[in-house]
Simulated assay, not measured.
Amino acid sequence: MKQILITIAIAGVLVSCKNTSENKKDADDSAVVETVENSTDQVETNYVPIDSDEALIAASLMAAPEASRDGCTIIGYNMAGDFVTLREGGNEFIVLADDPKKSGFNAACYHKSLEPFMARGRELRAEGKTGPEIFDIREEEAKSGKLDMGKPGSTLHIYYGESDLYNPKTNEVEGAQYRYVVYLPFATAESTGLPEKPVGPNHPWIMNPGTHRAHIMISPLPDKNKN
């Protein structure tokens, strides 16, 4: 009987030690997780103003496909307010840099075959023409063959946001998003099978159908992981 009582007592001690050890391990694991989570919460991105041509170029290049950024030609207003070629390039893309004098951020990257169309718009805008006037003039010139509209399917990539702050480590602009435009002059809903209005998030649709400026609009939803 005495031996049985001793055996029971020893077993109780062992179980108690095991439970204490497991509880301590659980507590240690929880502390590690909490520490990691707290450390993650404390990580902040240091966004800064775009205050140099170098920063302007780096941020504007985010509009271009990543694999093509090294070879893009970059044009636009520099920090001094002059419209210049900020960098010569040799591939199929032209980047139109953000205008430092305007609020927010808006850079674009387009296929070089669209340059006559884009340049004509800038020219007319410099003459003081309004948006509707520019549309009508280019519509007439495109229909007559005077204005080269580029290769059907040429794409415009837009990188835009309300902020003009960027991260020097990644060149990303705070809160910026992407939008894509695929030009198909004089295309319609019937010729493409696309709706004339978006039917849901991320859904492509055709804008300005039947005109020189007909294009497919694609507006991806923001990446929540970057917020």
Score class of each variant (00 low, 15 high):
Glu22His: 05
Asn19Arg: 14
Ser16Arg: 03
Val36Glu: 03
Cys72Thr: 15
Glu44Ser: 05
Asp70Thr: 11
Thr20Phe: 05
Thr73Ala: 13
Thr35Gly: 14
Cys17Lys: 10
Val15Gln: 02
Met62Leu: 07
Lys24Met: 09
Ala64Asp: 12
Val43Met: 14
Asp28Gly: 01
Glu54His: 11
Ala59Gln: 08
Arg69Glu: 05
Ser52His: 08
Val32Ile: 09
Ala64Gly: 12
Pro65Thr: 11
Gln42Asp: 11
Val48Met: 10
Pro49Val: 01
Glu37Arg: 15
Asn23Thr: 04
Lys18Pro: 00
Glu22Phe: 02
Glu34Lys: 15
Asp28Arg: 08
Ser16Asn: 10
Asn19Tyr: 14
Glu34Met: 12
Cys72Asn: 10
Ser21Val: 12
Ile74Leu: 11
Arg69Trp: 08
Thr20Gln: 13
Ala67Ser: 08
Lys24Trp: 10
Asp29Trp: 03
Asp41Pro: 00
Asp26Lys: 03
Ile50Leu: 01
Val48Ala: 05
Asn38Ala: 13
Pro65His: 12
Val33Phe: 04
Val33Glu: 14
Asp51Tyr: 03
Val13Phe: 01
Ser21Ala: 15
Asp28Gln: 11
Arg69Pro: 02
Ser30His: 05
Lys24Gly: 05
Cys72Pro: 10
Ala59Pro: 10
Tyr47Glu: 07
Ala58Tyr: 10
Glu44Met: 03
Thr35Asn: 14
Ala67Gly: 07
Glu37Asn: 15
Ala63Trp: 05
Val15Gly: 00
Asn19His: 12
Lys25Cys: 02
Val15Thr: 03
Ile50Ala: 01
Ser21Trp: 11
Ile74Lys: 00
Val32Leu: 06
Leu61Lys: 13
Val43Gln: 15
Thr20Val: 06
Lys24Asp: 08
Ala31Leu: 05
Ser16Ile: 00
Pro49His: 04
Val36Ser: 06
Val32Tyr: 05
Asp28Ile: 05
Ser39Gly: 04
Lys24Ile: 04
Ser30Met: 08
Glu44Asp: 04
Asn46Val: 00
Pro49Thr: 04
